[in-house]
């Protein structure tokens, strides 16, 4: 019967989370006891077999996933329209409220950030019309199409608001700045 601590160390080693000190402790135990060595070998072998058996047993089908049949094209279209309307409403309201922002590194001539506009699509700015921003490449592209610019999105979990940064890259180059907020 193996010591519980040794069993735990073997398990941690197989999971790749063994700390240095634990590694030394396990190595010593392996050198001291053939039983520990055999247990380690057996556990490693079983892990390997289990991994292979599970992955073979749960081979992911290569066919494209089917979209659930309840999906309605009309429903989607309505959703897209509401997203576009919400986004445009949000853009208009925040641009009016905040205006253009200017950053002034070291008190030098300001780096005008004409291309930067923070948009809040949360309840405060966009009202109920703006839904939460969804993830995925498809979504980002769809939003980019709506505003006709390249867009970076930053999502605030606390306020559940989305801030969009529109970038017209043709006039931009990266510069180092010191900024305080």
């Amino acid at each position: 019967m193996l010591d519980e601590n040794i069993e735990r160390l073997i398990s941690r080693k197989l999971d790749g989370v063994l700390a240095d000190s634990e590694s030394v402790e396990l190595d010593r135990a392996v050198l001291r006891s053939p039983e520990v060595r055999a247990a380690l070998d057996a556990a490693a072998r079983i892990d390997e077999l289990a991994r292979r058996a599970l992955r073979d047993g749960i081979a992911t089908p290569h066919a494209a996933p089917a979209v659930p049949p309840e999906l309605s094209t009309d429903r989607l279209r309505r959703w897209h329209r509401s997203v576009a309307a919400g986004l445009l409403a949000a853009a208009a309201s925040v641009i009016l409220a905040t205006g253009w922002q200017t950053l002034r590194p070291n008190g030098d001539a300001g780096v005008r950030t004409d291309a930067h506009t923070a948009l809040d699509t949360g309840a405060s700015a966009a009202g109920a019309a703006a839904p939460p921003f969804p993830a995925g490449k498809g979504w980002a592209e769809r939003y980019a199409e709506v505003v006709n610019r390249e867009v970076l999105g930053v999502y605030d979990d606390k306020t559940r608001s989305l801030y969009l940064l529109e970038i017209d890259r043709s006039h931009l180059r990266p510069v180092a700045v010191r900024a305080s907020y």
Binding site: A64, P65, V67, P68, L71, S72, R75, L76, W79, P131, P132, F133, P134, A135, G136, G138, W139, V154, Y155, D157
Partner: peptide, 22 residues
């Protein structure tokens, strides 16, 4: 900390087929 997965679920909740496929 941008939790893409939660947003994916939110998109699914809004009946986005692309998000569901993802």
């Amino acid at each position: 900390d941008f939790d893409q997965e939660s947003l994916l679920l939110e998109a699914v909740a809004h009946a986005d087929a692309q998000a569901m496929a993802d």
